[in-house]
Design a protein around this nucleic acid. Structure first.
Lengths: 201, 201
DNA sequence: CCATAAACGGGGACAGTCTCCGTATATGCT
DNA sequence: AGCATATACGGAGACTGTCCCCGTTTATGG
């Protein structure tokens, strides 16, 4: 049990969890790809064991990388969410606050409607502190509120509505179009109706 | 194989399916009560086998009486739906078409929010021809459309919106409040916001 | 090349749905 | 009342999906 080399075991771990092993990285990527396809095809409640099978790994591997469905969902939509947030940040500078808000809300709805059942998962992620989707939900919520407030201050949206309520309504619009053949158009139409009704008078 | 009495087997069955046997009727009732309690407590996706257990019958009995979850849900909410439809019929005569519509939509939302997950089941029932909930959904839809049209004709609601879209939005409002501690108030507030936005200008 | 930490995988426990079929019983007829 | 039989019951078990455990394999760096 003699320590023959420098003992580094007690040093603070500065670099965070060390990088994944090469095979682990490969498997992780495969899982994300398989999950993306499965969610696209069968909705957000696609069978996880199936995803593992398609990815060519055991189910244990899937659950080690992604302990919950939400974790997998978060990984799958990571890029899209990042893009959405960037888009939001840009729109915060746009001259027409009302139009900027509308544009971003549209993009948000498109994102939520990416696959069936995603709306529900996002709601859970919003409510559950410990969900792996929670962070993303909070970030999107923040972006939402800023764009809404700006629109309100610019007089484009009635000022007597709470952001939380508007969030719920926009989210509901996305949810309401679940399973529709012309989902994109329907969502657009409903969002327009909703926002039209929220204009200042 | 001699036929010794009058052969009635080929006669048209005029009386429909004969009345349930006494024990079957009892079990049916018990199942409905157990289901009601379970749905109230655990939402519309409560375990069916549990419901059977609580009702004191085998799971086979449950599935014979109610082949699907929707069938059970339909039986459980039969009375409430009937009442809602009567209420709707009465409101069709009300002088203020706008107020009548609002009142009924409120009652509808209350009904949809009876238990968690019910909104989703109702949507499925709306879409699926063969759902045991389909009939009720259609009836409620019809009532909805009449009250909306009346409000539109009275100039209380903008005339450029389709009933189908408004249905979806009202339904979405009900769904959006799922799991909220102050569900009733929240639903009321959101519905008010929505309908306020749909007024003619 | 080896020691070992890291990662794998799939068997299996568990929960839920739903069916099948041997058994029990309510009912109507005599 | 007693019987024949349609009617209904019950729960074992097939199946699907989630998720964990732990014996085995493999990448890595010294």
């Amino acid at each position: 049990m003699a320590i023959t080399t420098h003992d580094t075991s007690a040093l603070a771990d500065v670099s965070g969890p060390r990088a994944l092993r090469a095979d682990a990285q490969r498997n992780r990527q495969r899982l994300i790809e398989a999950a993306h396809a499965a969610f696209q095809q069968h909705g957000a409640d696609a069978s996880l064991d199936d995803i593992a099978r398609v990815a060519g790994v055991g189910s244990g591997t899937l659950y080690r990388h992604f302990p919950t469905r939400q974790a997998l969902l978060a990984a799958v939509s990571e890029d899209a969410i990042a893009a959405l947030l960037v888009h939001g940040k840009q729109l915060c500078e746009a001259p027409d606050a009302g139009a900027a808000m509308h544009e971003w809300f549209s993009a948000l709805v498109v994102h939520i409607t990416t696959f069936d059942g995603f709306a529900d998962e996002l709601r859970k992620g919003m409510e559950d502190e410990h969900s792996e989707l929670h962070g993303a939900c909070m970030a999107m919520g923040a972006s939402f509120d800023i764009l809404l407030r700006r629109a309100q201050e610019a007089g484009a949206v009635r000022s007597d509505v709470e952001p939380t309520d508007v969030r719920r309504l926009v989210h509901a619009v996305a949810h309401a179009t679940e399973g529709l053949p012309d989902r994109a158009q329907a969502a657009d139409r409903l969002l327009r109706m909703l926002l039209d009704g929220l204009r200042s008078r």
